[in-house]
Write a protein that binds this DNA or RNA. Structure first.
Lengths: 118, 118
DNA sequence: CATTCAATTAATGAACTGATTAAGTGAAGG
DNA sequence: CCTTCACTTAATCAGTTCATTAATTGAATG
């Protein structure tokens, strides 16, 4: 009886032991990438590479409303990508650590390199 | 109080020049992060760090159906994260370059580090 | 050429995302 | 207190994403 077509059966290729990350690690890492994977959020992060900034400053600079910026920051904070600090009436956000800074900086540098078009 | 040099109670009246990445670059970089930002895709990529593999091998190892794997690979290929090569009946996929390999490797290493509870 | 195999593509739909508007919170200053 | 300011949260909803099933492609082999 015919197996449902799941995969190649011949395996002419060498049988291998696959190294494969565990699901939990992939979930955690993917959550971080997903948080970075939005143009608006990434643009905010690009601002925070240089400065600690409050929500209104970010909103002003981007021409977005406060609520949108606040909600994006909340998501980034939940992934520990940014950290918040209150000072009087303002809440200042900054990148959590140098890993994040490197990720953002390198990614933006990378896409600015010359590419062949697709 | 220890006010940092960014004191901006009055930021609306103190126009500052923010360093802010252009939208196009953010869009490109975010597209790549978004492609990495899915546990299933990231797990496939973790396999490809070590080996060049055909679609069926990946599907077998992950216990996913061919179609799902193929469609994920298509997306990753469209972002130039993986590259494909036909050999006979099989199509082998590998990571496009060392940048991708580093991103995946570092991300998975990072989430495996000890963390304080949240 | 017809068949089989490996992979891709199409089509559908449930679940998720992100922007918007409005309402709510809490610190600061009167 | 009461108000204002800076921000957060809630609620809604259009748009997107992802897995699943079925149909299709194209290389390889009889």
């Amino acid at each position: 009886m015919a197996e449902p077509d799941i995969a190649c059966t011949d395996h002419a290729h060498t049988p291998r032991k696959y190294q494969i990350a565990d699901l939990a690690s992939c979930q955690l890492a993917a959550d971080i990438f997903r948080a970075l994977g939005d143009p608006s959020r990434l643009r905010m992060l690009s601002m925070l590479v240089h400065d600690e900034l409050c929500v209104s400053e970010i909103a002003d600079a981007l021409g977005d409303n406060l609520s949108a910026v606040s909600q994006r920051l909340k998501l980034l904070k939940s992934e520990r990508i940014v950290a918040a600090r209150r000072d009087g009436k303002h809440i200042y956000y900054k990148l959590s650590d140098h890993h994040v800074k490197d990720l953002v900086t390198n990614a933006l540098a990378h896409v600015s390199e010359p590419h062949d078009h697709h």
